[in-house]
Design a protein around this nucleic acid. Structure first.
Lengths: 209, 209
DNA sequence: GTCTATATACGGATAGAC
DNA sequence: GTCTATCCGTATATAGAC
């Protein structure tokens, strides 16, 4: 990438077309001709840059990892300083995606995690890396707010739990074509967070006596 | 189906081959020839029973719904009477599936929920019906144990939360090729359940005074 | 680095005899 | 209800000129 204002190179157009199409249609259901049409490229150019369709997938997953902060976290956290509210702001951003797609949204990473064959190990390594990037961001928030949770809170485990709730919520909303399952999942998570914080308060008060 | 001992009809062989293949490879990645080979049937027979591959998918989802109790719930609950333990026994059964597949397991329903295009509305209706059957079973457990939860507990919401945790946990375990994410998600859910029950105890004690 | 044309295999679905 | 043969479109990937 050569900067935000520069025109996209062929390679970049292929990657961004793939991001869009793999997200909408999945990997197997996206054909080379879909891809070439969307990227306004031709077969010769494609195979000049990528040995195969699978290598394009790897480039897509690298790009997702790179985009996580600027495209997902930074916009979600703009104007929000409280670390716990940042976690729910991130979830609110997924809610927006669900609504924008008329509740057909599927997380592109989650979708690929279930679609791609386990034999494509390199792909799954990059999928896991993307998940880990996401949970690391949430873990960072939890650690900033560590004093508001019980002292034995497992931040890694709880951050993964947040991801699990997001992925599961998105999945159910897609099959039900309603944002309600997602909202309920997030509400239940919020209820859990509130209980954890209440419990932390009680413990602190006990110590303070 | 004509009973447990009868040989399978061609139609049944096609459905059970599809259950296996859609689970392992997904819907789009399962070809007619995969299907016909596995079911030991031929193309003419297939199109005698099903107008198209999509109709086979609908039959598969009907079968999943029918099998939920006998194949999933009944075995999970055998010898377990406590309703809360039944919920975690169900999750333990998914853990077994994760282990049996060397952590490549993907829930067949969840996988299809993310793969199948939203335009195939009939398919998504049946996917949602399968999810609803699952959460209804969990909700039944929660209702049986209602007196052990806070009085304002939303059983529907909490039962959906259990499904969300299962689906998300399975997804992360597949990409990480490790049962750890699943175990951590279930452990966090257990911690939440324990807090809910503790809180219910306190409330009851308060009332009893 | 881009283009057109094409190789070769496989996809879902069908025809029509038995 | 089962069988073989096959239609026709599309899949990924390649060849070779520019």
């Amino acid at each position: 990438m050569t900067g935000p204002t520069a025109a996209l190179s062929t390679r970049e157009r292929l990657i961004f077309a793939a991001i869009q199409l793999f997200w909408e249609k999945g990997y197997a259901n996206t054909s080379m001709s879909d891809l070439l049409t969307a990227a306004k490229a031709n077969s010769g150019s494609f195979y000049h840059f990528f040995p195969s369709k699978e290598d394009l997938l790897l480039a897509v997953l690298d790009t997702y990892f790179t985009m996580l902060y600027p495209q997902m976290l930074a916009p979600a956290w703009e104007g929000i300083d409280d670390p716990i509210e940042r976690i729910f702001a991130l979830l609110a951003r997924y809610r927006m995606l669900v609504l924008q797609t008329e509740c057909t949204y599927g997380c592109p990473i989650g979708r690929l995690a279930l679609e791609i064959s386990p034999e494509q190990e390199e792909v799954h390594r990059l999928l896991a890396k993307n998940f880990d990037g996401w949970t690391a961001a949430v873990r960072g928030c939890l650690e900033q707010a560590a004093d508001r949770f019980p002292p034995d809170t497992d931040h890694e485990r709880l951050s993964e739990f947040v991801l699990v709730v997001m992925e599961g919520g998105v999945m159910l909303s897609r099959s039900h074509r309603s944002v309600k399952p997602f909202d309920q999942a997030v509400a239940e998570l919020r209820a859990y967070f509130n209980r954890l914080q209440e419990s932390a308060k009680t413990i602190r008060k006990g110590k303070g006596d």
